[in-house]
């Protein structure tokens, strides 16, 4: 009974809120940069183009494949669309200090942040990684989870649609 009650209250409340299916703004959450400094997601800016957010971890092999694939095409993508890639690691303190050496060791040209308490992961309902979001004017307009070879082209098609 209790549960039904809560669900009814929620449904009533959610019904009154303006649900937007198509796009929604990036939640304002504190992350850490690779120097350990708190950085809020509201500072993510790319004035001239879209932003891609990739959730990854040092132990996630498909994530590495995705970021490697984007890394190889990145110069061309920037030239054509001015896109900016932000790679957000969900590594915990077991691997915190390996995040920057790992990304540098792979020669990735991305901005790297750590979602140290998984707050952004939860706020964006990320269940599995890799999980990729495409943002236009800081609104999330497209997302995709998992990675297979060729998915980077699908992502690029989505960027071109903007």
């Amino acid at each position: 009974m209790k549960k039904i009650y809560i669900i009814l209250v929620l449904v009533f409340f959610f019904d009154n809120a303006h649900a937007q299916n198509k796009s929604f703004p990036l939640p304002e959450i504190d992350l850490k940069n690779t120097s350990g400094k708190l950085i809020n997601t509201n500072t993510f800016k790319n004035h001239n183009g879209p932003i891609i957010i990739c959730f990854w971890a040092t132990w996630c092999k498909p994530c590495t494949r995705e970021l490697n694939a984007i890394s190889e095409l990145y110069d061309d993508w920037i030239e054509e669309t001015n896109v900016k890639v932000i790679a957000i690691s969900i590594d915990d303190s077991r691997n915190f200090s390996k995040v920057k050496p790992y990304a540098d060791g792979k020669d990735w040209p991305f901005d790297i942040y750590i979602d140290y308490n998984n707050d952004l992961k939860r706020a964006l309902n990320v269940n599995f990684i890799p999980h990729t979001f495409l943002l236009s004017d800081n609104d999330i307009i497209w997302q995709h989870s998992s990675f297979f070879d060729g998915d980077e082209e699908i992502l690029f098609q989505e960027i071109l649609k903007l």
């Binding site: 209790k2 809560i6 409340f13 959610f14 303006h18 649900a19 929604f24 703004p25 964006l124």
Partner: peptide
């Protein structure tokens, strides 16, 4: 039961002057 209700009702009552332009999401 009441605690849970209060948790969800507080924002509706106290912040009702705030424009609810929020989003619902989930998994």
């Amino acid at each position: 039961k009441y605690l849970i209700l209060i948790v969800f009702l507080i924002p509706i009552l106290t912040f009702s002057q705030i424009n609810f332009d929020g989003n619902i999401s989930g998994n």
